[in-house]
Simulated assay, not measured.
Amino acid sequence: MTNQTFTNGYALLIGVGADLPVTVLDATAIGDILIDSELPVVTLLTKTSATPVNIFALFDQIITQVNQILKHHANPMLRCNHQLIKLL
């Protein structure tokens, strides 16, 4: 694997906790690795903050930021579609 730096990288890590407490530990550990790798935007949602409302709000925020980057891209199909992501 080559050593690459993401100049416009985003990570949304979700650890719901509750019946799956290890998900919080996993998301936090991955977040620590990504923060150490200097990924520009790392967001961690765990336990009570990992709600559908917060998750969708952060997806919308990331979509907006990515679309700003791709604003002048020649291929409009590369722009993110809010509805597509919300349906997933």
Rank of each mutant, 00 (worst) to 15 (best):
A27L: 09
C80V: 01
K71F: 11
A11C: 14
T7S: 08
P40R: 08
T64R: 13
I33N: 04
L12Y: 14
V41I: 14
I35C: 01
P40T: 08
L78I: 09
A57K: 12
Q61N: 13
Y10V: 09
R79E: 04
I35P: 00
L25G: 03
T7M: 00
L88I: 14
D32F: 00
N8M: 02
T7L: 08
L34E: 05
P76T: 07
Q68R: 15
N81D: 15
L84R: 14
T7V: 01
L25I: 01
T51R: 01
N54T: 12
T46V: 14
V24C: 03
P52F: 03
N8L: 06
Q68M: 15
D19Y: 12
I33M: 11
P40G: 11
A29V: 00
M1E: 09
I63R: 15
Q61A: 10
A27P: 05
P76A: 11
L20P: 02
N81S: 10
V41E: 15
I85G: 08
D26L: 02
T64I: 14
I30H: 02
K71S: 10
L13R: 11
K71T: 02
I62K: 07
L58T: 12
S37L: 11
Q83N: 12
A57Q: 10
I85L: 15
Y10L: 10
K71W: 06
D60V: 13
D60R: 15
T51F: 03
A27Q: 05
A11R: 04
A27C: 10
E38G: 02
L88V: 15
L45M: 15
I69Y: 12
L87G: 08
A57M: 07
M77R: 04
N81H: 06
T51M: 02
L70S: 10
I35H: 05
H73L: 03
D60T: 13
G9L: 04
